[in-house]
Design a protein around this nucleic acid. Structure first.
Lengths: 344, 344
DNA sequence: TTGAAAGCGCTAACAA
DNA sequence: TTGTTAGCGCTTTCAA
């Protein structure tokens, strides 16, 4: 290894004390321009970098942000959601020169050990946790540990938790209006699990929207898990209910739903219109292309990092819920040739 | 926060010195059974955890393993490969109670800053780097930094680098034999980028295999990037060359290739047989289901962690290339009803 | 088998 | 504006 230098030695090389070098490194004021530039020159020459462990031992800050994804590892990369989230989070951590520690686990038991490591070793300054399950015990443990954290999703307790989420309710409500405008009379709903806040919000947003318009989905509601196969099965059963349109609560579910329509010898949108939630599939991935409520997943990740950073350095003190707007992207699956696709 | 205790205090509570507690925590011998059990009891009661930063400052080990994925962030989660790799790596790091730091970047410029952080801050004990591009400068920088690292993929320099990879050559050679056995005469090849070791190996394995059998792909070779759209375009052009079968160098490319066959009004496998490489798509994802060379991606990740750990603690000293066998999984896309699908 | 003590590289008072 | 100094919590000699 190239010889590690330390503050003392940099100080020596630039004719100042260790403290002054520390001040320069940390961009503190109260350093003369002359000293600063000499030190900076030496640092540039030597490629000096502060030792992370020493720094965090002394300052009690690590520069590391944790991303905790519980109980989702298996489904993790079948659904594009988590990948995008990670992308957003890494973009933001890179931008602020922080390091990302990734904590994934499937088993509840693994989770305990991992959370132990996260919480009690002082390894991270704070964590972002994806709360897929309502009432996830992991969130509770973070809360008890008094470690700064931000929830991605709708928080269980709005009075005590910081969070960033897409507007699942609003985006789904918009779908109701949209289908109504297109003249559909027998809308159906394929709803993601009501054990998740996204599932609950997408369902309630859509149903409330229908209700406000004097419509309803009545018996045309099926709840599923997140898999494509579930989407297929759900659509197959809805077809028996004579739906003319269906709001499908996620892209993956919609891929399955389209398949079911196909397999029934029907076609989309002629026989059944489909609108999905997510908007994460590559264009042209399905045929017909999906009309979707697009959620800004990587932006959720970025905002979560910034919010967490604010919590860590104390500039955010009162719990805050950030809800990011969704966009409607119109494909052919809904039976509209064209419509204003602006932000809702 | 629940009051952080330190070694001294644990020692006090159990009536021994800080040193003895340290020995217990680190599972060192030379501690009397009595002392050990008293200390362990106190630790269990208090939920004591060593402070990570202090520990690494003193011992020069961090317990953190880095996973570096360069220049791939944009494509990252469109291709299931990286997700699976991350899954394997996290499973293994969890199992050995290590923490994973994830370094993703797109821009070469970002990369420099990130690698700087990885290399010079003493934040990680070692890193796993996915070497997609042959001659990636990131690998060079790791090498120069004298930081323990393991390459996922075929290393540029076998004499100096540890690596774990799937048997791209062997798996692809097997495809040649397989197609020949099924009686195909005009095989084509859709080859991933020859700027990547996987691209090079899959191409050469397949072509060598054909050659050994007295066959060739002649002008029926198209090189692509990794996108579905490229696969579609490549297949469209190969159809003009009157191929009767095509080895497609990745699942995603194959999805595009199947679409091209469809769009040309032809069918698979009747008009053109397809065999792909990867085997990462969910069953039933394509129709017909793909016959694929399956690579054990998450196992690659796990092995990489174990190998890296060996490098870090000095038990692995001479560079070692681990090549994991692939498996052939037979679907309908190759025109075989059934064949022995055992390990090659 | 145990304890005392030095020191890892840094930050953060405090004094100058 | 600068330097001095005292730790941060741990590991690791060394001596007992």
């Amino acid at each position: 290894m190239v010889q590690r230098l330390n503050l003392e030695e940099i100080g020596h090389l630039s004719g100042v004390s260790r403290s002054t070098v520390s001040r320069v490194v940390n961009n503190e004021p109260n350093v003369s321009a002359a000293a600063r530039s000499r030190v900076e020159a030496v640092i540039a020459q030597t490629g000096y970098r502060p030792h992370a462990a020493a720094r965090s031992l002394a300052s009690n800050r690590t520069g590391v942000i944790g991303l905790v994804i519980p109980s989702a590892a298996h489904t993790l990369f079948d659904d594009p959601y988590f990948g995008r989230l990670i992308l957003g989070v890494t973009a933001a951590t890179n931008a602020v020169d922080r390091t990302l520690a990734l904590f994934l686990f499937e088993q509840e038991s693994d989770g305990d050990a991992v959370i132990d490591r996260v919480v009690n070793s002082g390894m991270v300054d704070g964590v972002i946790v994806t709360a897929t399950q309502i009432g996830d015990p992991v969130v509770g443990r973070l809360h008890d540990a008094d470690l700064p954290f931000v929830v991605c999703g709708r928080p269980d307790d709005e009075r005590s938790q910081f969070s960033v989420d897409a507007d699942n309710v609003g985006g789904s409500r918009a779908v109701a209006g949209y289908l109504a405008d297109l003249g559909y009379q027998r809308p159906g709903l394929i709803a993601p699990p009501s054990t998740t806040s996204a599932g609950v919000d997408r369902r309630s947003g859509f149903l409330d929207g229908l209700c406000e318009l004097g419509l309803s989905a009545e018996s045309r509601i099926t709840e599923t898990d997140w898999s494509e196969e579930s989407g297929r099965a759900a659509m197959a059963s809805l077809l028996n209910e004579n739906v003319d349109s269906v709001f499908v609560g996620s892209d993956r579910l919609a891929v399955g739903a389209l398949r079911a329509i196909h397999e029934a010898g029907l076609s989309c949108p002629e026989d059944v219109a489909v609108v999905s939630f997510d908007g994460l599939l590559p264009a042209g991935y399905t045929s017909p292309r999906l009309t979707s409520v697009c959620q800004p997943v990587s932006e959720v990740g970025e905002r979560a990092v910034h919010l967490l950073q604010a919590v860590i350095d104390g500039s955010a003190t009162t719990p805050e819920q950030i809800v990011l707007p969704t966009t409607m992207r119109v494909g052919e699956s809904c039976g509209a040739t064209r419509i204003d696709a602006g932000r809702r």
